[in-house]
């Protein structure tokens, strides 16, 4: 007997049992609270989708399942909701088969064919879930890279690179490349590296900054490190970090003044004396 027909014939039983068990298993797959109503609708949907899939004879017509899986993952529901759903479905089907079939030979065949129907859904599920995660991770990665340090030309010969966030080795490499290419593109003679937005400056971060400033000097420009907060000055000294010879200033404003001096310019006030 084809197992699909068997499942369809017992649809009512299976659906009722499935819903009941899903409700019981709820704490297993849901570590956050979803309104009962929402959960019910989702379950309703889920079982419909499974039966739609079976109506398509488990062949090519798995689109409904795919769409459902995608939706669930996009809502940020746990993957375990979907896996529980499928496992419970398999269990319920087998229970129903158990109750109605007595021949051991028939049983084994039915079990096997049930697996053959459900396994492809599992595979699809795993594929979709990993794809979704990979996509998310790569999106976040490129978002992070976009955050990584633009070099902003603020005046002729002077550029600023504001650093924001934690600097790890990979980011440091990228920052260095951006920095040097920017120096060449803008013809920057002085670069201000602003670390106001860097939460922690440890030995590693300091090392990366020193290396960047040395590389900047090699291409023929100069660095000023600005945005040094008091607590960062403390850590730098406490850790015994030698910042080398390149100048540091507490604020971007002071750094710009120094940069102007280095390029033999200054800002003058052109406001007229208004004679009281």
């Amino acid at each position: 007997m084809p197992v699909i027909k068997y499942i369809k014939d017992n649809k009512e039983d299976i659906v009722t049992l499935w819903k009941k068990q899903m409700d019981e298993e709820r704490p297993e797959y849901s570590n956050y609270t979803v309104p009962h109503k929402t959960m019910e609708t989702a379950n309703e949907n889920f079982i419909d989708v499974i039966f739609d899939y079976l109506n398509g004879n488990g062949g090519e017509s798995s689109e409904g399942v795919n769409v459902f899986i995608e939706q669930i993952l996009q809502f940020g529901w746990p993957l375990s909701y979907l896996t529980s759903g499928l496992q419970v479905f398999r269990k319920v089907v087998m229970d129903v088969i158990d109750k109605n079939v007595t021949e051991a030979k028939d049983l084994l065949g039915l079990y096997k064919r049930t697996d053959a129907i459900i396994d492809p859904i599992f595979n699809q599920l795993i594929k979709d879930a990993t794809e979704t995660w990979e996509h998310t991770v790569s999106m976040q990665k490129s978002a992070l890279l976009e955050l990584s340090a633009p070099l902003i030309p603020i005046m002729e010969h002077i550029s600023v690179m504001p650093l924001i966030g934690t600097i790890d080795t990979e980011r440091a490499k990228l920052i260095m490349e951006n920095l040097l290419q920017g120096v060449i593109d803008h013809g920057a003679e002085v670069v201000l590296i602003d670390i106001t937005g860097v939460p922690v400056v440890d030995t590693m971060v300091a090392h990366h900054i020193i290396q960047a400033s040395e590389a900047v000097r090699l291409v023929g420009s100069e660095c000023i490190l600005v945005g040094i907060r008091p607590e960062i000055a403390q850590t730098i000294v406490n850790l015994g970090i030698e910042l080398g010879e390149f100048p540091t200033r507490s604020t971007l404003r002071k750094g710009i003044e120094t940069a102007l001096e280095m390029t033999k310019r200054k800002i003058i006030n052109i406001a007229q004396e208004d004679g009281q």
């Binding site: 490349e177 040097l180 040395e214 590389a215 900047v216 000097r217 090699l218 291409v219």
Partner: peptide
């Protein structure tokens, strides 16, 4: 003059400043 960014980075990696 004109040391390229790629060359500068390589020198720093080598430990040469």
């Amino acid at each position: 003059t004109g040391i390229r960014p790629a060359v500068a980075i390589t020198l720093i990696d080598l430990g040469i400043n």
